[in-house]
């Protein structure tokens, strides 16, 4: 009898928690579509703000869309270039078992938990020191630092899951550590590495606090890496801050665009990573 009650309670708990998960996701999406879709228009995504945009007049947020894409792609590429070798070197075949690796993991975990405004403030101070002003480059660098812990730690986790027998097979054929890492480990971990990149991309494109001081905000498209650049999260923030309901609705439209970008990317990546998985050993 007791067992039956346990079973029942656990079942209720599962249903409730799943309900909360699915329900809140659904609500977030519904609210944003509900409020944003009516204001979504072609001009929203093809034009930069005209004079008086924030008063409810003509224009769009192309500046923020492009700005966010530049920032996110730039930082993800940079972070990837740094993260992959870092994650690979944390294998036990390399430095994985050393004290150094322990401290690296520890600091990455601390960094992961650090609020992004701290990164923003840090970036701001460094840029002041070098006499740089808010720019695309500054934003990319700070976002890269923000993404590193996510990317390295998630890559490391999937690399750790590569069965040891696979590495052993490679070693017995006379492969070196390097050949084994790139010939076997990378192949086996590829779908997971992909996921890590998408995760970091999501965090990069969605973060407002770290780009507030470092990338700035502007109504025009950046012409060089040293120009300030707008971003979608800040576009949402500023538009929501105006007293005009019409502009506030555009904030929701901007949020919807942000959502669509992230959604598209994760669908595409799902599709691509499925292509990679056909050779994976389970």
């Amino acid at each position: 009898m007791d067992k039956l009650i346990e079973e029942r309670i656990f079942k209720i708990l599962m249903v409730v928690s799943l309900g909360i998960v699915v329900g809140s996701l659904f609500m977030v999406i519904a609210v944003i579509i509900w409020n944003g879709a009516p204001s979504l228009s072609i001009s929203m995504i093809t034009q930069t703000p005209k004079g008086g945009y924030y008063l409810g007049k003509e224009g769009g947020i192309l500046n923020a869309i492009m700005g966010s894409l530049y920032l996110a792609f730039g930082s993800v590429i940079l972070a990837f270039i740094i993260s992959l070798p870092a994650a690979l070197s944390l294998q036990k075949d390399y430095i994985g078992k050393t004290r150094l690796a322990y401290y690296i993991r520890l600091s990455l975990d601390v960094l992961w938990g650090t609020p992004s405004i701290v990164y923003g403030a840090f970036g701001f101070i460094v840029m002041l020191y070098f006499g740089m002003r808010a720019s695309l480059l500054g934003g990319i660098i700070v976002l890269t630092i923000l993404q590193l812990p996510i990317m390295i730690r998630s890559m490391e986790e999937v690399i750790k899951l590569v069965p040891y027998e696979l590495k052993e097979a490679s070693y017995t054929l006379g492969a070196t550590r390097f050949e084994t890492t790139f010939g076997v480990v990378m192949r086996q971990a590829l779908p997971g590495i992909f996921t890590a990149v998408i995760l970091a991309f999501g965090r990069g494109i969605g973060d407002a606090a770290s780009v507030l001081f470092t990338a700035g905000y502007t109504d025009s498209l950046p012409r060089s890496l040293l120009d300030p650049v707008a971003s979608l999260p800040l576009a949402v923030f500023f538009q929501l801050g105006t007293p005009f309901p019409e502009v506030q609705r555009r904030a929701y439209a901007s949020a919807l665009i942000l959502l669509l970008i992230v959604l598209t990317l994760s669908i595409v990546s799902r599709y691509l990573s499925r292509k990679f998985t056909k050779n994976i050993i389970r």
Partner: peptide, 21 residues
């Protein structure tokens, strides 16, 4: 050591094909 290992093929207890064709 890679020369040593090349000289000796190893057949493991559980087959371990590599993640490729």
């Amino acid at each position: 050591v890679t020369d040593v290992r090349r000289k000796m093929g190893l057949l493991p207890q559980k087959p371990n094909p590599l993640p490729m064709s």
